[in-house]
Amino acid sequence: MHRYLKIHDIYIDFNYQFNDFFSSAINAYEIPHLPKNYHQLNVSIKDHIYDDTTDQLLYQNKTRHIYESKTTRTIVTYTNDHQDIKHIITYTKDYKHIHIILNQKLGQRLAEYEYVLTGFMFMEIAVSRNYLPMHASAFSIGGHTMLLSGPSKSGKSTQTRFFKNTFDDMFIINEDKPLLFLKDDQCYAIGSPWSGKDVINNNAVKEVDALFFINQADTLGVYPLTDKEKITHVFKNIQKPLYEHFINHILETINQVIKHVKMYRFDCINEDRSATYLYQFMEGRHENQKPLCN
């Protein structure tokens, strides 16, 4: 399958093999033509994959070898027993050309690997373009746009489900990894075709009102964060760049996001009323509280 995609101002020439995860949601991002400044993202499948690169070995651990040359980087991922290669990703350091090769032996998991790896590389592109991919669920309800952020297994999906159960007008921007960007001192969240295992996303740009870092607790509460806590939480929940060149960009973006987005710790419980509580907080309906937004 071959599509031209526009995700905000990121243009992708996307060649992929499976529709299992992209399905019809990807249609919202499709455009008829590409401008000159686009990124090529290709996926192919091979019966046999060999690690025959002659580039310099940069790093290795039990299952991964990373090589680089002056202009490209190659990530070779092995099976746990190191007997075979699961996939190889080769990309230019400017992320203009990305090629993912999957081993046919991944079998029934090929579609899943394709979705996860193309998503990973898309987020790398996004970081190189000054977007901040957040590990969060981004959605709007009643004119408020909020992000619920937290690592895997923190309860993000559960809390998002509570909102779905409670509010009919919930509009999900991206249920797993929205991109944040700043314009004129305002932070925005955008959707993309890569949005976690349930693939819930919309091609939308929404002004962010607040970002909540969720914490499983016995009682409900919303608490302000110190600057140090904000930096730690944000950094824990973003896709971090590997190169120093991009670190400068992303740290400046984090700096601006911290300045311009209200951030809180949300002590949540495992019940639907977590959603009502947080919505009331956004409306300023808790005692001695002003509304978060106009």
């Binding site: 990373i66 600057d227 984090i254």
Partner: peptide, 15 residues
């Protein structure tokens, strides 16, 4: 970042 001094890993240390 802001008024915080942070140390950030890059390249192979980031992995």
């Amino acid at each position: 970042i802001g008024n915080q001094i942070v140390v950030v890993p890059i390249e192979k240390e980031a992995m």
